[in-house]
Design a protein around this nucleic acid. Sequence first.
DNA 1: CTGAAAGCGCTAACAC
DNA 2: GTGTTAGCGCTTTCAG
Lengths: 337, 337
Amino acid sequence: MATIQDVATAAGVSTASVSRYLAGQTVRAATDIARAVDELGYQPNVSARNLRTGRHAAIGVIVPDVTNPFFAALIKGIEQEARTAGLQILLGNSDEDLEQENALIGELSQRTDGIIIAPLVEDGRSAEDVARLRLPVVFVDRESRERRDVDRVMVDNLEGTRLAVAHLAALGHERIAFIGGPLSSTPGRERHAGFRASMAARGMPVDEALVVVADFRESGGHDAMRALWRSRPTAVFVANNLMTIGALRALDELQVRVPADISVVGFDDLSFAPLLRPPLTVVRRPEVEQGATAARLLLDRIGAEPGADPVILTLPVELVVRGSTAGPPRERAAHHG
Amino acid sequence: MATIQDVATAAGVSTASVSRYLAGQTVRAATDIARAVDELGYQPNVSARNLRTGRHAAIGVIVPDVTNPFFAALIKGIEQEARTAGLQILLGNSDEDLEQENALIGELSQRTDGIIIAPLVEDGRSAEDVARLRLPVVFVDRESRERRDVDRVMVDNLEGTRLAVAHLAALGHERIAFIGGPLSSTPGRERHAGFRASMAARGMPVDEALVVVADFRESGGHDAMRALWRSRPTAVFVANNLMTIGALRALDELQVRVPADISVVGFDDLSFAPLLRPPLTVVRRPEVEQGATAARLLLDRIGAEPGADPVILTLPVELVVRGSTAGPPRERAAHHG
DNA sequence: CTGAAAGCGCTAACAC
DNA sequence: GTGTTAGCGCTTTCAG
């Protein structure tokens, strides 16, 4: 591997001039240097540069599960934005494991200029760990109770839930069930709270047997739905994409028809949602954009003075009505009769 | 940030001893050093270490599309294995763009100890670029015509295709259509070749109107299916997951019933495949395992002498028969009559 | 087992 | 605009 010294010698200048040329400054021997760089196939040594400058030209991204389509889209958005700025992505998959998440924070913070993280829980050590770092950090989709002073890019969970409940209520549903995620996580807590608030706002009582807190996984949604069905809801709002898949699987097993026997609304769209029979009604949000926004926020922080007020962005959601929602069985029976 | 010098001073030893302690060697003042490390919250500077050792403790992963469930699963497998070995992942998403892929190869090769790549095409510059690197490289899922001397972890595309065709033929289908990916890519080429070979092996003629080469994207599958339907196939084998989604969408639009009017087999399972109505019959492969295998191969290469013979691993596939395949319409009519 | 010291390749003062 | 040079923090000879 050629070094900057080799290039300097070949071009008949000092390493400083080569360094300046590389940095885009005007240099007299530019053409000579360019030729030397080309001939030697010179590539600057990243480690040396990083050591010298104290920067890394990389950002860390920590998500609970790369295979969740939402996080995959998030990563895509982050990647696009980071690439434009010339930064690499160090990816960490915590696999829904707090220990792993903590380890990742420690490791990535030593090799990046900033971190984008979707923390597993709101009050975990992770939040504290992140605080201790002097690195810029952006929370995506999830926030931390301890670190209210950190930038974050959220999504309007309350509004999403309200839209779902309003839609179901408008169709005449009264026995609306809710399958939520861990209350320790932001989407879990907010969507849960949003559900109760939306029901209350409409003067609708919440049957506690119809509210299940699960784990955001497919299996969790599946088990929750099986448990829930015994209490005969006429509609169910499922708080994330994976659990929705699980819930649909459970309904399938139970031979419960959608939407004839039960209406289903999911949170987060899925590429195949329109393909399901019936096509799934969902609350949709701009996933890739959420990632890109988080990246932009982080890039702004990197290189800026620390201590500025935290930026909190809340992206809008929309309800996409497809075929999985209809009036409750009773009403339909009435209509038919 | 505390440096190794600070620790050495605090512990009353030289930096060399601290370095040795950190490397796990037996050192007399171990307890003193341990305490100093702890009190100062010492974290070794990664850039300095990398500069000195010439290593990076990181591997690069380049895929065409993070949001494709297959690649997401691949990444998950790679991540798991790399983490165990203490290596970080630098992720590159080429977004199905050759230029981008080339740029990524260049960038990542300067900051990693090895690269796992699923190349877009078999004879692109990427292959050449990779060859020029002196880094260990592993191709996953896709290979390169120019670089036959590189490790690779493939999947048995021919067998997968054969299983699909055999299944459809056994059901009585004769007009079997094929929607493939770019012939410039390995899965595109092999599945296409496999289809023709499997048909020939059974003495079944291939109607050229029933063979479409698309682009592995959802839209490609959609358009191909619409075009294909005019020639009235009784079954279709779609060569990847995204295109299968598109094809199903097209059939839906055309109000063609599956499997009553047409049987469908996809390549690559999908978490929601069992949820589709009818549940989708697919060729399945061990995706996460494929990633993990590639990572293991790369890890073996890193630190080993270069020049060993290339390792070529081909992982098995299996056919998962669900509800989207049945006998052809004619036969069914005959049975009913 | 230990310490002194060289040096990985680069950038940024600094003096010209 | 240019060259000289110090030094980022670490590991690894080398001599003891």
